[in-house]
Amino acid sequence: MSEGTIEDRELRNLMVRYQHADPAALDELVRRISPPLLRYLSASPNARNEVEDLVQDCWIRIHRSRHTYRSSEPVMPWIYAIARHTRLDAYRKRRRLESREVLVAEVPDTAAHTSPENPDASLGALIDTLPESQREVIVMLKVSGMTLEEVARATSSTVGAVKQKAHRAYAALRRALTGQHER
């Protein structure tokens, strides 16, 4: 069991209070966890239009599964493991619906990520081009500051596999950035 950061210890404490039905702990958890959840769930370009619904759906799943959280474990991998299944289920549902629809036009959804006011927005657009499995590893490592082991737990994977995905994502981003500069 790792002691974790101050923030992690606070989250663990909030989760235990949430399990004891403390409404203040619930409010505080929703306030603290929703922004990284929103970021994670919107990391998939196709999911941006429905991201608020996804966050709500994810919280309902967290609520139903709250008895499976153990206070000896870090909170964020547990949250992300549930968020990941929420996102995968939504993806499957979307795919099923799309397969039944006739696609009229592909609407570009990257305007917000290529804003000239934000120099790192173009990086966001490049991250969008990464495969889903690499993108989620980058988001977990960078947005939530999780360790490789925590990401492995959240993605039902091994530390070696996570390292490999992160390495490939970095290599792809570096290649893309070099290509941008050359142009």
């Binding site: 039905a21 619930l26 929703v30 919280w59 008895h67 153990r70």
Partner: peptide
């Protein structure tokens, strides 16, 4: 959004025994 989520969950908030 946060308020909506908190309100929805608070309506079914009950103590649970950890697994």
């Amino acid at each position: 959004l946060e308020q909506r989520i908190a309100q929805t969950l608070a309506s079914s908030l009950a103590p649970v025994r950890p697994l």
